[in-house]
Design a protein around this nucleic acid. Structure first.
Lengths: 195, 195
DNA sequence: GCCCGTGATAGAACACGTTCCTGTCGGGTC
DNA sequence: GACCCGACAGGAACGTGTTCTATCACGGGC
């Protein structure tokens, strides 16, 4: 019975993984609009109702996918120390790494960003998790030790600016270069670095 | 003929004004979801196709409404000098005024914010206009003279944080008080003020 | 006076997110 | 072994943003 229970759990986890994989794949190919719930269900070989049982909306699905991606990114960040002499340098290095990853998959970035910004109160928990992962990466890059409340606030401000830059880039309002420049400006204003 | 031409133009402008009024009214009552294109058309007494001729999408419509609201706000800001002894104080005063206006109409704020963040490349121009109005208000509050490029960048960063705070508030992720606190923190970090 | 193009109207039609219903199956209970 | 229950498959149905079609009204040029 222990075995059969774990098999059921395995099936459930496997379905969930397949769904998230499909969502990421469709998003990578065609962005937010290409992640159509019927298509996700078909390619994941689950019924539409089952998809909705696992993720109660398209936004939930994509934010969950974002969460998984961020967890992997955070693991990578934790694995190796962030290079750079000052907190500002290290944070910028981290942000540039993230930006590069994102720009490698523009459609995926567009899909996840659109989902993130169109999340409503019902997704607040998942959004909070993503926010925590991001600020955690930032404070880890800025300071080795546990961050002070003040440093956490600063990290959140940086995250805000990053989100806004991402939005500007996704909506074609600002080029990648300008987004980077604005981000650098903000970080140098906010974090200690060389004069 | 001069008269008839101007009559046609008047009709066009009047239709546009009616549509925007309706959108604002519906948004004020019920937020983003209540601004349904069929309802806007009916209450504005235009056909659905006409509505789409004037505004090619719901997002365009709401961003145009946002633009009109911001133009009015900017006129008010320009009309009287912003009180406060330091740039930081003045900017915070302005932001608090704006926040109060917004919190007076939470549904309208939700509607306009959702539209703003779900804008795609086809709305880039209107979005840019809104951004200009906002940064213009900010630099006007911070400095009397024409702003330097550096000051403009700072204003944009403040605008980014403001947008992020707005999103957090709209999505129910952060309370109004916390949003205000984060904004204050950011402004004091970014702008010159009392030590 | 007549014709034509332009923009308006009414309404059907379509796309996709979401909900709902019905039947089926596998696994635990007695 | 019979039974029951919860989860899933398959698919219809619904709501709303968006598009399309058919028709009409008006104002300017011949």
């Amino acid at each position: 019975m222990g075995e059969s229970t774990s098999t059921q759990l395995d099936q459930r986890l496997d379905r969930r993984r397949r769904i998230l994989d499909t969502a990421i794949s469709l998003a990578t190919d065609g962005g937010y609009d290409a992640v159509q719930m019927r298509a996700v269900a078909e390619r994941s070989e689950v019924a539409l109702g089952t998809l909705y049982r696992y993720f109660p909306s398209k936004v939930h699905l994509l934010v969950a996918a974002m969460q998984r991606e961020f967890e992997r990114a955070e693991a990578r960040v934790r694995a190796a120390p962030v290079p750079g002499g000052t907190p500002a340098d290290r944070v910028l290095h981290l942000l540039r790494t993230l930006s590069r990853d994102l720009q490698d998959d523009p459609h995926l970035t567009e899909a996840l960003t659109r989902a993130f910004v169109s999340a409503d109160a019902s997704v607040a928990d998942d959004i909070a998790t993503v926010e925590r992962l991001l600020t955690s990466m930032l404070t880890h890059a800025a300071h080795d030790a546990a961050p002070s409340p003040d440093q956490t606030t600063t990290a959140r401000v940086v995250a805000d600016v990053w989100l806004a830059a991402l939005m500007g880039w996704v909506t074609g309002r600002t080029g990648a270069a300008e987004a980077d420049a604005r981000l650098e400006k903000a970080v140098r204003l906010l974090l200690p670095g060389p004069a």
